[in-house]
Deep mutational scan, measured.
Amino acid sequence: GAPPLPPYSAGGREVTMKKGDILTLLNSTNKDWWKVEVNDRQGFVPAAYVKKLDSGTGKELVLALYDYQEK
């Protein structure tokens, strides 16, 4: 199953993602919540729920390892 959710501390809205989604990583300075862009929406997802990909394009991409439903 998915890892436990860290307390929400990102101070911005969250976004929903599905397992297998490829998201653009915008900011990973917060260790628990990373800012991503998905379907032209920006928001935060739990860092433990995604994995960085080596895209080779200069853009940082992450793979959704679990479904996440915004609150």
Rank of each mutant, 00 (worst) to 15 (best):
L65E: 04
R13S: 11
Y49M: 06
Y8D: 09
G20F: 03
G20S: 02
W33D: 00
S28W: 08
K18F: 08
I22T: 05
M17C: 05
G58V: 10
I22L: 08
P3Y: 05
P3S: 04
E70I: 09
Y8K: 10
Y66G: 02
D32Y: 15
G43D: 02
D32S: 06
V15G: 03
P4N: 07
K18I: 08
K52E: 07
G20Q: 02
R13F: 11
S55Y: 11
T24I: 14
W34C: 02
K35W: 15
L5A: 07
P4K: 08
Q69D: 14
A64F: 01
T24P: 14
G43I: 06
L23A: 08
L25P: 00
L61W: 10
D54W: 11
L53I: 14
Q42D: 10
T29Y: 08
A2C: 07
D54A: 12
D21P: 00
Q69V: 13
D54G: 14
D54M: 10
P3A: 06
S55I: 12
K52Q: 10
G20K: 01
Y49D: 02
Q69K: 14
K19F: 04
T16D: 09
P6C: 03
G11Q: 13
G12E: 11
V36K: 00
G56P: 15
K52G: 05
F44I: 05
S9M: 15
T16R: 07
W33P: 00
Y68K: 02
L63S: 04
T29L: 08
K35S: 08
D40R: 09
W33T: 00
W34L: 04
L53R: 02
N27G: 06
N27E: 15
K59W: 09
T16K: 06
K59L: 11
D67M: 03
Y66C: 05
Y8W: 12
A64G: 03
S28P: 06
P4I: 07
W34T: 02
G43Y: 07
S28A: 15
G43V: 06
A64M: 03
A64V: 08
V50H: 00
G11T: 14
K51L: 11
L63C: 06
M17H: 01
K59G: 09
K71S: 14
G11H: 14
L26K: 04
A64Q: 00
P7G: 08
E14C: 11
E37F: 05
D21F: 04
G43L: 05
M17N: 01
R41A: 12
T29A: 12
Y49S: 05
S28G: 11
I22D: 00
T16Y: 10
A10K: 07
Y66M: 05
V36R: 00
E70F: 09
V15H: 05
G20D: 05
V15I: 14
